[in-house]
Design a protein around this nucleic acid. Structure first.
Length: 306
DNA sequence: CCGGTGCTTGCTTGACTACA
DNA sequence: TGTAGTCAAGCAAGCACCGG
């Protein structure tokens, strides 16, 4: 069958004809005259090479082929109907969506805490799931809808995603209160003499951006603990003489219980981006979520990063 | 009970019209 | 000019009624 020959209106008429099993009644339902629908039935008969409906005592009787078509036809028209239905604008007041955001715990603390407060007030019916970042699977997770939004560095962002910069970030060092090294600004010598905690979302590593900077300066530090949770860093630092270099906004959150100090060497700033699948680009709910994340990020970006 | 008649219902077809 | 619609007429089948 040549698809070019198929007029969608003919299929709509067939659907009504099969439901009514009466050309006159079907024509009335389709706002057509009975002869007009009779002409369409003739075209359908040619198209399907089957009588489709045979005259009966009262109305028409469907042929086996017509009965075979009825179910799939109804489903196809319902799918088409939903496909072309006007997309409803997102209404945060009544929405009950669940948003899944993949990010590190440091970004969760910095961005997601104000974000969730914002969502609770604007869209009390929505739910938020914060998920760990599985860098290798991120593109696949977003493609399948397992994750709606990723908040990560551009390096961790799969190239297939659309992305937008949220804010820039630098590093600060954390030491416990009363730590002997905290009495004066950290020098490179003091910094390298201390034992370090290294945090990385992937975990397991003992070398990071700070080690790269030190290597360029011909220096090195001793990383004795490697963790994948930034939040655990404050506990470890608070209970030991360890030092930990963490994103500045996170460090400042703990300034009341830990010493927050500038690192003795210049560690390159980095940026945090949000990424989403192209499929979700024009989805009203997803767009609204991205706007809220951007708004939350404007709030934190406004605060000095150094 | 059966067959004839007329009415109703419903489909098809031909003539005509409107419109792009 | 072609397409898609309406109007009007024709035809077929079912049904009710009536008379023999």
């Amino acid at each position: 069958m040549d698809l070019n020959r198929i007029d969608l209106n003919l299929l709509v008429s067939l659907d009504v004809l099969l439901a009514e099993r009466n050309v006159t009644h079907a024509a009335r339902r389709l706002s057509l005259s009975q002869p007009a629908l009779s002409a369409q039935l003739r075209q359908l008969r040619e198209l399907f090479r089957d009588p489709l409906l045979l005259p009966a005592a009262r109305g028409m009787t469907p042929t086996a082929r017509a009965l075979e078509l009825q179910g799939p036809l109804r489903e196809m028209l319902a799918t088409l109907s939903s496909l072309v239905a006007e997309r409803q604008p997102f209404d945060p007041g009544t929405a009950s969506d669940t948003f899944r955001i993949a990010t590190t715990d440091s970004i969760q603390a910095v961005v997601c805490v104000p974000l969730i407060a914002r969502l609770r007030s604007l869209a009390p019916g929505v739910r938020v799931a914060l998920l760990p970042v599985a860098e290798a699977r991120l593109a696949e997770q977003m493609g399948s809808g397992e994750v709606d939004l990723a908040l990560v560095t551009p390096q961790a962002m799969p190239p297939s995603l659309k992305s937008r910069a949220l804010y820039d970030e630098t590093f600060l060092c954390l030491l416990r209160q009363g730590h002997p090294a905290a009495a004066q600004p950290l020098t490179l010598d003091t910094f390298c003499d201390l034992d370090h905690v290294l945090t990385s979302p992937a975990g397991g590593g003992f070398s990071g951006v700070v080690d790269e900077v030190l290597a360029r300066l011909g220096r090195r530090r001793r990383v004795v603990v490697s963790i994948n949770s930034f939040l655990l860093a404050q506990e470890l630092v608070g209970e030991s003489d360890l030092v930990c270099t963490v994103p500045s906004r996170l460090a400042r959150r703990w300034s009341d219980k830990l010493n927050v100090m500038a690192p003795p060497c210049e560690v390159d700033a980095f940026s945090i981006h949000m990424g989403w699948h192209p499929r979700a680009h024009s989805d009203p709910a997803q767009r609204w979520l991205r706007d809220q994340v951007a708004e939350a990020a404007v709030g934190i970006a406004g605060r000095s990063a150094s």
